[in-house]
C-alpha cells in the first residue's frame, strides 16, 4: 500500500515550482524557527517536533490521523484541531496550508 502511495506521489504532477512555492511559504512564515524541515536550509528549530518524516508520522500533533487533509487542517488552524496546541495560527489560507502539507508529506520520502 505504501509503495502504491509513493508511486502515486511520484506520478502526480509535482513540479519543482510547487516545491519552490512551498519553500517560499515556509521561509515567509518562519516555520524553521520552531521545526526541523527537510530541504529548507536553516530550518532547525527545536520548539516543535522535527518534520523530517511527516509521511511516516501516524498522527498530526498527536491527536488526529495524518492524512493530507488532516495535516492541512492543522496547519491552517491548529487550535481548531487541538485547542491546547502551542502551534500558532499563522493565518494561512486553506490552499497555502494544503501546499505545505503536500510538501511535508513528500519531503520525508526524498
Amino acid at each position: 500500500m505504501r509503495a502504491v502511495l509513493i508511486l502515486a506521489a511520484l506520478a502526480a504532477p509535482a513540479p519543482a515550482d510547487a516545491e519552490e512555492a512551498a519553500r517560499a511559504l515556509i521561509a515567509r512564515h518562519g516555520c524553521g524557527t520552531c521545526h526541523v524541515i527537510p530541504g529548507v536550509p536553516g530550518a532547525d528549530g527545536r520548539t516543535g517536533p522535527p518534520l523530517d518524516a511527516m509521511a511516516r508520522q501516524v498522527y498530526v500533533a498527536g491527536v488526529i490521523p495524518n492524512t493530507l487533509e488532516g495535516l492541512a487542517r492543522f496547519i491552517a488552524d491548529p487550535q481548531e484541531v487541538d485547542p491546547l496546541s502551542a502551534m500558532p495560527d499563522l493565518g494561512l489560507s486553506p490552499e497555502e496550508a494544503r501546499r505545505l502539507a503536500v510538501y511535508l508529506h513528500a519531503a520525508g520520502e526524498r
Binding site: 527545536r46 520548539t47 517536533p49 518524516a53 511516516r56 500533533a61 496546541s85
Partner: peptide
C-alpha cells in the same frame, strides 16, 4: 526502526514543548 506513531524521543528532552502543549 522508522517507527512514527509518536515522535522520536532522541531530542524530546531538548524540545521546548512537550506534546506541543
Amino acid at each position: 526502526s522508522d517507527l512514527r506513531v509518536g515522535p522520536p524521543l532522541g531530542e524530546a528532552g531538548e524540545r521546548r514543548y512537550i506534546a506541543g502543549v
